[in-house]
């Protein structure tokens, strides 16, 4: 395609025309993408959270948690879908399994690190005052670990939504199905769906950032202020989520 200003503008104009003519189709596919990503994230959370919190509480398995996180990073999303095409064939199960695997590592690494890293003196004081282990986990460790844990969940959502259009090659449906099917929808459709997916990803990150801010305990915000840390939670906060994902073996 030539780099021509007129053509360039025309292509984006066409894609907006496509959006206007196919709004309901795009909305339907957007909902499908949200449902697929949400389900995968939900399963990843359900599978990972109890396990990671428990390991973090016991301060065990840090090597394993980090190794799984690193392994996860090395897994190409498209490759995962391809492998499960070979194992499970086309369809929902394949896509679900692949997206869940994509979503697990950031949740596991951040949750483990967050719970494991709760100030040991605070936990010692809690235990010394006669709190039960379960109470310590729910009333002390989880609230204190929440911001870092949530950063992991945001990263996980970012990875899962990022991979969800790829899932279309294995029959995952959603907006990706338009993107990979230029023969049926034309490039204006492909471009329109790509823009919608990008907007969806950015919107979800922004909403999660607001949510993260809302659930961060007031006392922790006060602590951050007292230490002179910035409590900026915006779209640009996605990078803080990334930092928390251990990258070293």
């Amino acid at each position: 395609m030539p780099f021509a200003a007129a053509g360039l503008g025309q292509q984006f104009l066409d894609s907006f025309t496509f959006m206007g003519n196919n709004t309901s189709h795009l909305l339907h596919d957007t909902l499908a993408t949200i449902a697929l990503s949400g389900a995968a994230l939900g399963v990843a959370l359900a599978v990972t959270l109890p396990f990671a919190v428990w390991l973090g509480h016991l301060h065990r398995g840090s090597g394993m948690a980090i190794r799984i996180a690193n392994l996860g990073r090395a897994l190409p999303e498209l490759g995962l879908i391809a492998i499960f095409l070979a194992i499970l064939g086309i369809g929902f199960l394949n896509v679900m399994v692949a997206l869940v695997i994509v979503g697990i590592p950031p949740i596991l690494a951040n949750t483990f690190t967050a719970v494991d890293g709760v100030d040991p003196d605070v936990v010692d004081a809690a235990r010394g005052m006669g709190m039960s282990e379960l109470w310590i986990v729910f009333k002390i460790e989880l609230p204190l670990a929440l911001p870092l844990m949530f950063a992991g969940i945001r990263t996980s959502a970012l990875f899962v939504i990022g991979a969800s259009p790829l899932a279309a090659i294995a029959g995952g449906g959603g907006l990706g199905e338009i993107i990979v099917n230029q023969a049926s929808y034309g490039f204006d459709g492909v471009l329109a769906a790509a823009i919608w997916v990008a907007a969806l990803a950015l919107l979800v990150q922004a909403l999660l950032a607001l949510l993260q801010r809302a659930i961060t305990p007031e006392g922790l915000k006060a602590q951050a202020r007292a230490r002179g840390e910035k409590v900026v939670v915006g779209i640009s906060d996605a990078e803080r989520a990334m930092e928390a994902t251990p990258s070293h073996a």
Partner: peptide
């Protein structure tokens, strides 16, 4: 981080 957030397939297109 704005760039990083955009799904890969979408950014390519």
């Amino acid at each position: 981080s704005f760039l990083y957030t955009i799904p890969s397939l979408a950014l390519f297109q």
